[in-house]
Computed example of a mutant assay.
Amino acid sequence: MTEPAASWRTRIAHQRPQWPKRELGVVVDRLATAPALVAPRECDALTERLAGVAEGRAFLVQGGDCAERLGEIPAVRGKLRLLREMARIIAYAVRVPVVPVGRMAGQYAKPRSRPTETVAGRTLPAYRGDAVNGTGCGPGDRRPDPARLHRIYEASRATRGVMRTYAPEVYASHEGLLLDYEEALTRTDEQGRRYASSGHLLWIGDRTRQLDGAHVAWFATVANPIAVKLGPATTPEQALALIDRLDPDRRPGRLTFVVRLGARRVRDLLPELVAKVTASGAPVSWVCDPMHGNTFAAPTGHKTRRLADIMAETAAFVEVHRALGTQVGGLHVEMTGENVTECVGGGVGFADLPRRYESACDPRLNRGQALELAAALADLLKQGVRDATD
């Protein structure tokens, strides 16, 4: 890595909570000596598998909670079971190995578009995930609390234990949003390479991918496979610059672009982005996130997404790649194994949303909706396999 390890500290870390410094220092020092959550060899193994994704020899299925909650470890098994079911459905269609990656064992922080939110008629600091603050309305509930960083480390450690027992083939991923936490858990191997030990695959969000920002600077220093979310404001030039910063050696499997453009814009925006990156020769994997570009407020006031829009963006993503002759690398979704009512479609209407709306942040697909999406994607991919073999 060419980026100096400490250079991120001299840059703006967007979305960074206003931590009380003394309390943060105590927690960071404690985490710096804590056992790693993942091993370098596991990260390297995932890099090799993602190289296959970029080359069309494998397919990535990534999913899990929008934001994990402390105290919900028992729900991990259901999410793992659903992720593996989706992977099996898609594997049957693509006839290549599927790489299952969970949004779990670390997905406890969320970027927010506004610093405040309205709850029960009151304007409060925004909830930023259990790693930062709480959802309550009482004094101190919304204050950034560094002690939570150690609590989410312990919760992530427990989740990793469940994953090793029930799904050792599933890798752990999360958004590397809180750089103080990530740096404290960075470890150096015998060859002097720095690894984020908090998860196998970390990603930079669309709100923190600034080329001169702290997140890009920090991610450039670690050897893990990494991803970047690309929203509708992303230009091909920005994508190429991100490649130069984050994967200067063009290492297969190192970099994944997770595209979140929205069902109504993907056909307009994606072709030029893919074409110019492909022409550069960079070995990136292209993954569809059909969730984040399709969020809106329901008549009930709940934040929601239509399953039809999610399926439409997924289909458009596949069709654009098919027209360009490039590889459809994978699917990235927010989902849960529980029978929640957060997204409409698949038997859930607007009137059903209050019944089991359990997400503290963004709406997730329930088990039936996620399997319906996986089956629809499998049909699309199966057609591509048939066309290639005819």
Rank of each mutant, 00 (worst) to 15 (best):
G293F: 02
L177G: 02
G384K: 01
T186C: 15
E272M: 01
V385Q: 09
R69C: 14
L31C: 10
A315S: 14
A13S: 14
V318L: 08
Q369V: 11
G52E: 09
A233Q: 12
P139S: 14
P40R: 13
P232H: 07
I226Q: 01
P225T: 12
E313Q: 11
C66P: 04
A13E: 12
P111T: 07
P168Y: 11
A282P: 04
L380C: 07
A155F: 07
I12H: 14
T135W: 05
V222R: 01
G136C: 12
S156A: 15
A109T: 08
G64C: 07
G346I: 01
K276G: 00
V27D: 12
A39K: 10
V258C: 12
Q210C: 08
Q383L: 13
D189Y: 04
L255M: 08
P283G: 05
H14M: 07
T33P: 00
S359L: 07
L31F: 14
T326H: 07
F219S: 00
A360V: 11
T326D: 11
L307D: 04
G106A: 13
F317C: 09
L270N: 02
V228W: 06
R306N: 05
P4K: 14
D244K: 13
V287N: 06
A275Y: 00
E169L: 13
A220L: 01
R88W: 07
G349D: 14
A315G: 13
V162H: 02
T235M: 03
V61G: 05
A54T: 05
G337C: 12
F317K: 12
G161W: 05
E338F: 02
A91C: 08
L230E: 11
G136K: 14
A282K: 15
H215S: 08
A167D: 11
G140L: 07
E358S: 14
L60N: 02
R245P: 00
R322D: 13
V266M: 11
G213T: 04
A378S: 12
R77W: 02
R122A: 13
Y108H: 10
T47E: 15
V228E: 00
Y92V: 11
R143Y: 11
P225D: 03
G64N: 04
T300E: 12
G262L: 06
R207G: 03
D309S: 12
E272P: 00
K276T: 09
R267V: 13
E72S: 10
Q238W: 06
L377P: 11
E154T: 15
T304H: 05
A239P: 05
R57W: 05
L261K: 03
V132T: 09
R322T: 13
M104Q: 04
M1T: 06
G136E: 10
D189M: 07
D309Q: 04
H200S: 12
A323V: 05
F296N: 05
G25Y: 03
V98K: 00
G71C: 08
V119I: 15
V27H: 00
V258I: 15
L60P: 01
A233L: 10
P17E: 08
V287P: 05
A167T: 11
M335E: 02
G102R: 01
